[in-house]
């Protein structure tokens, strides 16, 4: 595939994008989607959250997982950054600490796809934060 270098190139991709989206929307219900939140405050970014975020955004789609990947702020677990909150449909969210690309891969394959808990959960009760 040719590289997108200009707005005109981007325009050419429009049809492809639209069909990708409509294909997915057929099976889409927001509550039924996996939600992944990557903590991206100073502490997270300094520890590598950007690479983890890019990995989740790119790979969940490639592996056909219906998911929303968003950024969140610092939950106070700066020592364990990068942290990632994963919420499977109908379940309580789980927070993983010290997530790198390898761990992210394990989270997708084991936890998200098979519902099997993976090592590295931060064992503290918490509530999703709205504001950073």
């Amino acid at each position: 595939m040719a590289k997108v270098k200009s707005l005109a190139d981007l325009k050419k991709m429009k049809e492809q994008l639209q069909s990708d989206i409509s294909l997915r929307e057929k099976s889409e219900h927001p509550e039924g989607m996996v939600q992944v939140k990557v903590a991206m405050a100073t502490c997270g970014i300094a520890s590598g959250a950007k690479d983890v975020m890019e990995f989740f955004t790119g790979n969940l789609q490639k592996r056909n997982v219906d998911a929303i990947v968003t950024q969140t702020g610092c939950m106070g677990y700066c020592y364990a950054e990068p942290t990632v909150e994963v919420k499977l449909p109908g379940q309580d969210p789980v927070v993983y600490g010290f997530v790198d690309v390898k761990k992210a891969d394990e989270i997708i394959e084991k936890y998200i796809k098979q519902g099997e808990l993976v090592d590295g959960i931060i064992p503290v009760n918490y509530e999703t934060i709205d504001k950073k």
């Binding site: 270098k5 981007l10 429009k14 994008l17 790119g58 969940l60 990947v69």
Partner: peptide, 22 residues
Amino acid sequence: ILEDIPLNEPSVIGYMKEMIGE
């Protein structure tokens, strides 16, 4: 250009990155 296609679509993020990087 993209009209109703949202910018948070993973492929769109990829294309924007490619375009800016190039």
